[in-house]
Amino acid sequence: MAGRRKCFTFLDHTADLRIRITGPTLEDLFRNAGLSLMEIMLGKRPRLKTSPQHLSLSGDDLPDLMVRWLGEILYLLDGENKVVMDIEINAISEMHLDAALHTVPLDPRTHQVITEIKAATYHQIQVAPTGNGWQATVIFDI
């Protein structure tokens, strides 16, 4: 999103893509993770009129919830040709989240996919509080 501070950093991984995401709250962390995934795949996205859709998701714990969450966003792009432009996390707990996703249709004329991500993996996944917020480490298969 325009004006949004970059909230992820690339970490080294030989074959795949490892990133660290941060956020002041758990809601922010999940929002940032979803938007980071879009930024890595599509770079800057033109601001177009979005359509909202609701998503309710369960996981075994926070790391599982994170992998499933990123999987949902990836599926929207690859399976339904929808680009997530913005996210509101309405409720979140260890094992559940409710979110509103604002999407636009994927259009090859306006969107250039820079990096193909096959999936968010469970390998060395971490989601944990830090001194001043939350942090997650995720490895994507690319």
């Binding site: 599982d64 992998v67 999987g71």
Partner: peptide, 17 residues
């Protein structure tokens, strides 16, 4: 392609649980 990616993803999640 995405067909295989999704199959792996589906079963990893199911096996995890």
């Amino acid at each position: 392609r995405g067909f295989g990616h999704q199959i792996c993803d589906d079963f990893l999640k199911e096996m995890g649980r």
